[in-house]
């Protein structure tokens, strides 16, 4: 994360300025503490609300070390997607894709498939990294919560539809080097393919470990995994694969 992106600097400068004005008016103004929000743009006021107003528990320790302030500071991709409301114009989208590609780090011993049974648990688990009124235990493995948004094992009925169905993902595509690479990159930083996607960057954000990613990949691609029960003849063609 970049704690001193241009926005933070701008807001700080604005607040400093407003502070000076505020001092001069202290005698008459009821709002003697802090700047006058009405001098701010909605964007600047929103940043003030996040970082200066005491609205969030910024000093609370977080599982990855440090405090919750880091969670609120936006990196470039978060900022660009917020500003363009997830519909980046072509030049911004290109920049996001480039940044995302640069961010991807690969396992030293190549992209391997782990244990699909462990992947099945991780795909169901929504545990990990929550802070605030209740804190997730950092010693418990964080889940990928894939089922919140994707269909996978067709026998699991409790699946969401914010993302596409992944049933028979490996059956339809195989487990070759290029497929493994694509799936790894999609989990690590999906903005490399879909700029401003809703999907979290599980790798860049250190949400899932390399080991967890390998298990989830096995769950998706392993022919033995219930995600790949097989398809009717011709279904691949119908789905354009």
């Amino acid at each position: 994360m970049y704690p001193w992106n241009h926005r933070t600097v701008m807001v700080t400068a604005l607040l400093a300025l407003a502070g000076i004005v505020g001092c001069a008016q202290q005698e008459t103004s009821e709002r003697s503490q802090g700047p006058d929000p009405l001098e701010m743009t909605p964007e600047a006021y929103a940043e003030y609300l996040v970082f200066e107003s005491g609205s969030f528990r910024l000093d609370q320790p977080v599982q990855e070390g440090g405090d919750a302030r880091q969670r609120m500071e936006q990196d470039e991709i978060q900022r660009l997607c917020s500003e363009t409301r997830n519909r980046p114009p072509a030049d911004v989208a290109g920049r996001i894709v480039r940044r995302a590609r640069e961010s991807i780090r690969y396992p030293e011993d190549g992209i391997q498939l782990g244990d699909w049974r462990k992947g099945a648990e991780l795909a169901r688990s929504g545990y990990g990294y929550r802070v605030g009124h209740r804190n997730d235990d950092p010693d418990r493995t964080a889940g990928g919560n894939c089922y919140a948004c994707h269909q996978m094992d067709p026998d699991e009925l409790g699946y969401g539809n914010l993302g596409p169905s992944l049933t028979n993902y490996g059956e339809l595509r195989g487990q070759g080097e290029s497929v493994r690479r694509f799936v790894y990159e999609m989990i690590y930083n999906p903005h490399a393919y879909f700029p401003c996607t809703n999907m979290p960057r599980f790798g860049v954000n250190d949400f899932l470990s390399q080991e967890s990613i390998s298990h989830i990949m096995a769950y998706l691609l392993d022919p033995e995994s219930p995600v790949n029960p097989g398809i009717e003849p011709g279904e691949g063609e119908r789905r354009g694969l």
Partner: peptide
């Protein structure tokens, strides 16, 4: 008005360890 408009900015503001904002859901 300012409070509503800042609320709109917050609605679209993506941050945190999962890159979510209210807009995501």
């Amino acid at each position: 008005k300012l409070t509503r408009d800042a609320g709109e900015v917050l609605f679209y503001r993506r941050a945190g360890k999962m890159d979510f904002g209210c807009v995501s859901c």
